[in-house]
């Protein structure tokens, strides 16, 4: 069994006040491992994204604790949580959220500049990250010149360029067709395996089912199912990445 990178204990979150209070997550406990891609699925409103936000240091839980890389995340002050995300977390969102004015390469370099990497080294790393997602040749293009799948791969390059231990993806495939969707998930899967990163993907896309190491199903704010998926087709996944 591999190392646990993120662990949460009895976290809960409610929105609204008084009679309108809606309990989105009810006392959930979970441990996520290095080197694994975990899918978190569930119907709309089941609280998947809220769950991810609390694990990733984006939204403070009402109760419970989140331990990430050995740190009690929500005991840190806001600036320290920002620093934690800067150093250790990569994010991929449904909308690709690339700056229109920057080229693919610049979009990847840009957040690096706020860390410790600067200048040529940052550009070299950004180029390597774009190579890794198969966009080395298109690094000079702006988002408007890229397809949806390519944009999402740039966003993935941006998330993984700082070599984070934790990668969070929220509906990364729902704006993509099935081919591009599977390319994106296989990419995330490979990063988990090769780098030993923890990858958590929130999705309602059942097609991704086959491509993960572990499946967590959420319903009404509670974990309903948590099971490992036997991997049968890693070689195929590897081929598709370069399709």
């Amino acid at each position: 069994m591999s190392e646990v990178l993120v662990r949460c204990e009895a976290i809960a979150k409610s929105f609204g006040q008084g009679a309108l209070t809606q309990r989105v997550i009810r006392e959930a406990t979970l441990a996520l491992n290095a080197g694994e891609l975990t899918l978190m699925m569930g119907p709309s409103g089941s609280g998947k994204s809220t769950f991810l936000a609390m694990l990733a240091g984006l939204m403070r839980p009402d109760q419970g604790r989140v331990e990430a890389l050995g740190q009690d995340l929500w005991q840190l002050d806001d600036a320290a949580i920002d620093r934690f995300r800067l150093q250790h977390c990569g994010f991929v969102f449904q909308g690709f959220n690339l700056f229109a004015a920057l080229t693919a390469l610049e979009n990847v370099v840009f957040p690096l500049q706020y860390g410790s990497l600067l200048g040529d080294e940052a550009r070299r790393r950004a180029h390597a990250a774009l190579e890794e997602v198969g966009l080395g040749e298109r690094a000079h293009l702006r988002p408007v010149e890229l397809s949806g799948g390519e944009k999402q791969r740039v966003a993935i390059a941006r998330a993984l360029v700082k070599q984070p231990e934790l990668i969070f993806a929220d509906e990364p495939t729902s704006a993509l067709d099935s081919h591009n969707g599977s390319v994106v998930v296989d990419l995330l899967h490979r990063i988990a395996r090769e780098r030993g990163a923890m990858v958590l993907v929130v999705t309602h896309d059942p097609r991704l089912h086959q491509r993960a190491d572990r499946l967590i199903e959420l319903e009404d704010g509670q974990i309903k199912r948590d099971e490992r998926i036997a991997q049968t087709e890693p070689a195929l996944a590897g081929e598709q990445e370069h399709a």
């Binding site: 990733a56 984006l58 600036a79 920002d82 620093r83 934690f84 995300r85 800067l86 150093q87 977390c89 990569g90 994010f91 969102f93 909308g95 959220n97 690339l98 700056f99 229109a100 840009f110 957040p111 706020y114 860390g115 941006r158 998330a159």
Partner: peptide, 18 residues
């Protein structure tokens, strides 16, 4: 117009001051 991109930067840990 770039609010989502700025929010994505915030997620990646870029400070509000930056």
């Amino acid at each position: 117009a770039s609010l989502k991109e700025f929010a994505a930067m915030r997620a990646l840990g870029v400070s509000r001051q930056a």
